[in-house]
Design a protein around this nucleic acid. Structure first.
Length: 220
DNA sequence: AGCACGATTAACT
DNA sequence: GTTAATCGTGCTC
């Protein structure tokens, strides 16, 4: 079951002297729990090009997803679930469609989506987006950085979109959410690169080399 | 209670 | 290319 939302497109001002005016809109569809209730490898690939939306002070911030990584169960020694069910990893054992937000390096937050199938502990890490809505707010949260470096890393996304502990375990598939993903056109295989995951150089093989990082080259 | 380390970033040389 | 920043987590004593 998918939920339908209306999105008013920017750039359509109401004329001061007019009696009638036009508002242009399109339908935007929020990704459902069914979307996330699959292997993190499938979800990571299919998230490319989709629209991450954050509501901050009633305003929409959004970015198109360009980079993801899959973390796949207790056996995957790069996945936090390698430690089994703990206070931190508990959320990954729960329902797909929740967020998993964690703190690392003493200063950075990381945003993940819990995936499936079912209660299998797995998640997709968001590593990159291209900002497309709320640019002034995003710029102010990434002060003195060039636009290309606003959201091209997992902790940068959380900085730009104001994501921290408060959004850990957040349900993205209901009407009350402040963070969710909206459906966009799929990205073709020709625009997708697949590599090993990064930042896990101490993880033993074969996990270190699993081709579970997905990058999209998005045409504007 | 103490320890080593981390799914990173920004600022260096 | 190197490295400091900075603290929660999970593990050992």
């Amino acid at each position: 079951m998918e939920t339908v939302y209306w999105r008013i497109l920017p750039g359509h001002a109401i004329p001061k002297d007019g009696v009638s005016f036009t508002i242009t809109f399109m339908i935007s569809t929020r990704l459902s729990a069914d979307f996330f209730d699959r292997s993190p490898i499938i979800v990571a690939r299919e998230l490319l090009g989709q629209r991450l939306v954050r509501v901050l002070d009633g305003q929409r911030l959004a970015g198109l997803i360009t980079e993801t990584e899959a973390y796949n169960g207790e056996e995957d020694l790069a996945c936090h679930a390698r430690a089994g069910l703990t206070r931190r990893t508990k959320i990954m054992y729960g329902l797909p469609g929740h967020t998993y937000v964690y703190f690392t390096y003493g200063m950075h937050w990381m945003l993940n989506f819990v995936t499936g199938p079912g209660n299998f502990p797995s998640a997709v890490l968001l590593r990159g987006v291209v900002a497309v809505e709320g640019l002034p707010v995003i710029a102010s949260r990434r002060l003195n950085r060039p636009q290309a470096e606003w959201t091209d890393g997992p902790a940068k996304i959380c900085q730009a979109f104001n994501i921290d502990n408060c959004l850990n375990g957040h349900w993205m598939c209901g009407s009350a959410s402040q963070l969710w993903v909206e459906k966009e056109q799929p990205v073709a295989d020709e625009q997708v690169a697949i590599t090993a995951r990064i930042g896990i150089s101490r993880v033993p093989e074969p996990w270190r080399s699993k081709p579970w990082r997905f990058l999209a080259h998005l045409e504007p």
